[in-house]
Design a protein around this nucleic acid. Structure first.
Lengths: 356, 356
DNA sequence: AAAGTAAATAAAAACGTTTTTATTTTGGTT
DNA sequence: AACCAAAATAAAAACGTTTTTATTTACTTT
């Protein structure tokens, strides 16, 4: 009973030493064999790999991390909804994370999520990740026109990929939607449909892509030889409430819009709600063009014409670019700017009444 | 020029040795002082803490991890949307992650996200996390009636909190919505409004909470002395398309429902879309009651009566419970089942025409 | 004042790797 | 046969902690 029945009690997972004892090779050789170093002879490698498989050996991540200084983590910055009263803002982190996660599958990297509350907090979190090397790479969105995170990360040569571009001429890996083009195209379509007073339900002006959208919006008017209805641009959080409130306010103006461009589906839903309560019909009294987040615009009543944005694909690209960046690839080669695809779902010219 | 100008070139972050050299104490004392061990004298502790602050010392996470065997990570299992054609399913991981992240703020734990594709994959991922101790604790949702993850985790005494309960009498930390009660209450409300043919747009029957909803649905009929319209229960993914298709199918039956209970906002939107295309009006021809995810039902046209589920709060509880569980607290004490709050937004009795 | 004890600190070991350096083995050349 | 280089493997060091064990210092007690 009190014999030698202790060592086989706890099924501790095998370490490199276990493998050394089992194969007769030194831990150095084993490490090299499993890491694919060319200095170890082929038969030796085969024997070690076989033994590793047999014992179910998995290199301890903590040991590796300490020795190599790597963390095998990819960090993602995610905004945290502030305190009480959650309001949907259409920012689809579920899809983004899903895409990144897919890209990381099969790699040695794990995804870690860091919440932040505001711009300052986001910067501090990014800095902390770099300083403590809490991750080997970073992904973030919500890029500001003059985003200090980008300067800091470029400066410290930390691998990162941003969803969005800042307005400074720096070289860094990024994925973005061609927001200028998207806003231009939507606005031009409405102008062609006869609209002259067009509203833009836009994001907070501190965000780089909000400015891009305004640029495209204005260019559409300029190219048509018209003055842009910039007085009808509303910027704010992208909640449904913001969409509703903005629409109610704009439609109450002395010279109200005859069409609205909505920057995402959340605000679109709010706009539709406002139109409903004002008893105005989409496609008859007012036209609406939007951008997809969760692809539910087809189910709105009536279905809304949107630009489809493949958010999950953007997520995958973010992950893929980060892997390549962490592997040392030149950031200049890691850039993708995608153009959303128009999905027309109803006429955008007030039922033809306004066409000229 | 070639003097001693090398050591101050790279601003390496200070280690415990740096601190030892700087204060004159040994690394052992420093570790104890900073970890709050009572054996170190107060003046010593003060001096060390001061020096640590001055040098900006932060214990290296990898060193700690290796020595203690802990990872300082809380893992979350997140479903990955399968390949092409994203469909919103209303499962709000953004909010859940946000809540968990808030709970973890200030603790030493970081959030790591692990994607999975199906039930089997989720189990394998959970197992891997346990086997490799890739995290110190685990959170997951999508609990099946007979969820093998729960058995495995209970068996191996790994700290975890589930969002949802399985149907086996095991003791484990969990957070859940009282789905039986929620379905009962919604159904009873409709029955009281005069409805007899009620549809339930439900989740996949493999999910524990889908069964709970059916239970509550049936109980409402039973307590009213009626036969439950179980032929009108539709189970599937929670996409908007599923909601729409289900509604179209059910309303085309010889004996169609006069009211629908929708399990989330995604399916609700699909149901409303179906009603719109069939030219049936909510609150006039058909009644709808739903459950909130992203709280946009107020913006539907017309606004829909819903049960409000504080998803972010559930997320915070998940995080809080996990922290307490990882600290060794008894899982029997870590249980919360919340009852959603009814927010009436329109009459649910076919405009009163059906009341008896 | 010497001895004993408690308090405080220091030294050493260990966690599991990878990498650098050292040693042994092999095979070819003279 | 002796030597040398190259190939293969082993040994040792290091990464930064925490924890166990050892040593020193400071008080009490007699």
């Amino acid at each position: 009973m009190a014999e030698t029945e202790k060592s086989d009690r706890r099924e501790l997972s095998p370490t490199i030493k276990t493998l050394a004892a089992h194969t007769g090779y030194s831990i150095a050789t084993i490490s090299k064999a499993l890491r694919g170093s060319p200095v170890v002879a082929q038969p030796t490698r085969d024997a070690i790999v076989a033994a590793a498989r047999e014992l179910g050996y998995q290199a301890n991540a903590r040991g590796m991390a300490l020795r190599t200084g790597k963390t095998y983590r990819a960090a993602v910055l995610m905004p945290i909804t502030s305190a009480a009263g959650y309001e949907w803002d259409g920012v689809e982190y579920t899809q983004i994370l899903s895409g990144i996660s897919q890209a990381l599958e099969g790699s040695d990297y794990q995804l870690s999520v860091h919440g932040f509350r505001d711009f300052g907090d986001a910067f501090d979190t990014a800095r902390r990740i770099v300083d403590q090397s809490a991750a080997d790479g970073l992904i973030f969105s919500g890029v500001q026109a003059d985003d200090p995170r980008i300067d800091m990360l470029v400066e410290s040569d930390f691998p990162f990929v941003s969803l969005g571009r800042c307005r400074k001429p720096l070289i860094y890996a990024h994925v973005d939607v061609d927001n200028e083009w998207a806003a231009f195209t939507a606005t031009a379509r409405l102008i062609a449909g006869g609209h002259r007073r067009i509203a833009l339900i836009n994001a907070d002006r501190r965000l780089s892509y909000a400015l891009d959208r305004i640029d495209g919006f204005s260019r559409a008017f300029n190219e048509a030889g018209l003055a842009a209805s910039t007085d009808l641009v509303a910027g704010g959080d992208l909640s449904t409430r913001f969409g509703r409130d903005s629409a109610l306010r704009l439609l109450g103006l002395p010279s109200p819009p005859t069409a609205l461009v909505c920057i995402n589906e959340s605000t679109t839903l709010g706009v539709l709600s406002a139109l409903g309560s004002l008893d105005r019909r989409v496609g008859v009294d007012v036209d609406v063009i939007a951008y997809d987040d969760i692809n539910v615009s087809a189910y709105f009543t009536p279905p809304i014409t949107t630009f489809y944005q493949p958010i999950e694909l953007l997520g995958r690209k973010l992950g893929e670019f980060l892997l390549r960046r962490m592997a040392g690839e030149d950031p200049a080669k890691l850039a993708m700017v995608s153009r959303p695809e128009l999905i027309g779902r109803q006429p955008d010219n007030l039922g033809g009444r306004n066409r000229r």
